[in-house]
Computed example of a mutant assay.
Amino acid sequence: MEFETLEYIQEEKELVQEEIDFPRYGEKSTENAVGINSKEKYLFDINRGRVHLKKVTLQNRIQKTIILLRLDIGGPPHSNPPIDDEHAPEVLHGPHLHVYSPEFGDSMAYNLNDPFLNKINPRFDIEKFNTKSDIELYKSFLEFCNVVNMPTIIAQFL
């Protein structure tokens, strides 16, 4: 992982909104945040499944299109790109976290128990991603992404 990418991921961020209307099943929303030191603009996306109600995608972006982190829950298996000619692509089943790299963009993902994730946020307990509540999952994702001000989440008719 390129050092600058890790700096973006590890930077403390502050959400612009104090209250968030959590999207219903089948809906999406995007929240804005600002890096405390860099003043970089960050975006946090929530995408909830319509047909598969356990499917949730949460992502943290910069510069509108660069996905730094994407957490996929309840989706299909994911095939990582081949690292070299000697190794077949790894296929991940179950929840996984995509982490941006200059070489692979956001196509490289890791199982949630992969020790590599501890390098991204050593203070975060990855077990917090094992929740049945989409709202708690989103809060945990914000914490993993170093958001310092947790919003009030308004959830009507989930």
Rank of each mutant, 00 (worst) to 15 (best):
G74K: 02
I120G: 02
E127Y: 06
I135F: 07
K28V: 02
L142M: 11
E18P: 04
G105A: 09
N80W: 09
K139A: 06
V34K: 14
L158N: 02
E7I: 13
I126Y: 03
R48A: 03
M150N: 07
H98C: 01
Q156G: 03
E19K: 11
H96S: 01
I36R: 14
T152S: 08
G49I: 00
V147M: 11
K139P: 05
L43Q: 14
F124T: 07
F124Q: 08
E103D: 05
D45Q: 12
N47K: 12
L117F: 03
L92I: 15
Y8C: 12
E90C: 07
L69N: 06
I62L: 07
N149D: 11
C145N: 03
R48Y: 00
E143S: 15
K119Q: 14
E14T: 13
I36W: 02
H52Q: 13
Y8N: 11
E143N: 12
V91A: 09
D84H: 12
L92D: 01
K119S: 12
D72K: 04
E12Y: 10
F3Y: 13
R24L: 03
E7K: 15
S133H: 06
I153Q: 05
P151L: 00
K55G: 02
Q63C: 07
R70L: 07
R61I: 00
K39Q: 13
L6C: 09
I62V: 15
I36S: 05
Y8R: 10
I120Q: 04
V16T: 14
L142Y: 03
K41S: 11
K128T: 01
K28F: 01
M150T: 05
E7R: 15
L15A: 02
Q17W: 01
V147H: 10
L97S: 04
Y110V: 00
Y110L: 08
I126Q: 13
E12Q: 14
P89G: 11
P82S: 09
Q63Y: 11
F3M: 10
F124Y: 12
T30C: 11
Y42N: 00
S38D: 07
N118R: 15
I36L: 14
L71H: 01
I154T: 01
K64G: 08
V56L: 08
K128M: 13
E31A: 02
A33E: 06
K54F: 05
G74R: 03
Q156A: 00
T131N: 06
T131H: 00
D125R: 11
H96M: 02
N47W: 04
E27H: 07
K41F: 05
F157D: 12
D114W: 07
G35N: 07
P23G: 05
H87M: 13
L69K: 06
A109S: 12
E18S: 13
C145V: 08
I83G: 01
I126N: 07
S140Q: 09
D134S: 14
Y138K: 08
F129G: 06
H96P: 05
A155G: 09
L71M: 12
I153G: 01
T57F: 00
E40P: 02
V51H: 08
Q156L: 06
F116L: 12
Y25W: 04
E19D: 02
V16Q: 08
T152H: 08
L112Q: 11
S79K: 15
E136W: 05
H98L: 01
P89Y: 05
F22E: 10
I154M: 07
F44A: 00
P122W: 08
I66V: 15
G35D: 02
L97N: 04
A155K: 12
E136H: 14
D21G: 00
E11R: 08
S133E: 06
I73Q: 06
K54Y: 02
